[in-house]
């Protein structure tokens, strides 16, 4: 009797005939279906619902997916394996060897994906710059995230970039982000008036978020007087229209106020693009 119990405990896998493959298949299928539905329905609701709720709804997608995967995993493992402390070490040891040799990078990405959900350096809907690419996070998968750039390119970035790359997040879950528009002017002008004029360019924009600051920073540089107009659009999806609007009207206002933009600064900017 005791031997039978010892044998049972030492057995790594459950008896083949005791494993319910139908049940396992169903759990996997239902899990996949739930994740598929979540990844479609929640972004749809986010795009149709109030703008203020969009990022909250999108942010729940990776969390719900993680919960479903962990739940399915915890449900399936006891159906296949005979879980004892001894067996746990055996499985963990075997898994460590496999991961260490064959799937190191993949598992690193998975773990970074889990860390990213809790640490939240980015989430769906955020505008981030990572490894030189700037765009909106359109989805956060288990191993990687997808960025949609301003030129409508989809870039897939593995989560394990967070181990050794800086991630610059422009909005951190907020519905808006700061937009900065630069103007370089020849130094001979009334800077006080110019600063006021450029502030009014921001304050009269149709995209302006009233609850956020709008201000102008001025600095003297080697290529001219550098004005930075900083303001927030009421919706971060309008950031490029907002920047274009500020640039167009800013140029007109500068000219009307007697300012002249420096061509040197423009050529320097062109070189860096």
């Amino acid at each position: 009797m005791e031997n039978a119990a010892d044998e049972k405990a030492a057995q790594l896998l459950n008896d083949f005939q005791d494993i319910s493959f139908v049940k396992i298949t169903l759990i996997i299928l239902i899990g996949f279906a739930a994740i598929w539905l979540i990844r479609r329905i929640l972004p749809y609701l986010a795009s149709r619902g109030p703008s203020q709720l969009r990022l909250y709804i999108l942010g729940t997608v990776p969390v719900l997916r993680l919960i479903i995967i962990v739940g399915a995993f915890l449900w399936i493992v006891p159906l296949i394996f005979n879980i004892t402390l001894q067996n746990f070490f055996v499985i963990a040891g075997a898994a460590s060897v496999a991961i260490g040799f064959a799937f190191k990078d993949y598992v690193s990405g998975l773990i970074a994906g889990i860390v990213a959900i809790f640490e939240r350096p980015y989430g769906p809907g955020d505008w981030i710059e990572i490894d030189g690419d700037y765009g909106e996070v359109v989805s956060v998968g288990m191993r990687s995230l997808r960025l949609n750039t301003a030129d409508d390119n989809i870039i897939t970035v593995p989560h394990d970039k967070i181990w050794d790359e800086n991630v610059s997040n422009a909005n951190m879950g907020a519905h808006t982000l700061m937009c900065v528009v630069s103007f370089y002017l020849q130094p001979d002008h009334d800077a006080v008036n110019m600063r006021r004029v450029l502030a009014d360019v921001g304050l009269t924009s149709a995209y302006l978020d009233y609850k956020k600051p709008c201000f102008v920073v001025v600095a003297q540089t080697e290529v001219g007087t550098h004005y930075k107009l900083k303001a927030y659009p009421f919706d971060l999806r309008d950031q490029f229209q907002f920047i274009s609007d500020l640039t167009e009207r800013g140029k007109l206002a500068i000219r009307a106020a007697g300012g002249i933009e420096t061509s040197f600064a423009l050529s320097e900017q062109a070189k860096t693009v």
Partner: peptide, 12 residues
């Protein structure tokens, strides 16, 4: 309706 539309779209 206009007010609701503007609020949902995030306008001030």
């Amino acid at each position: 309706a206009i007010r609701t539309g503007l609020r949902n779209a995030g306008y001030p």
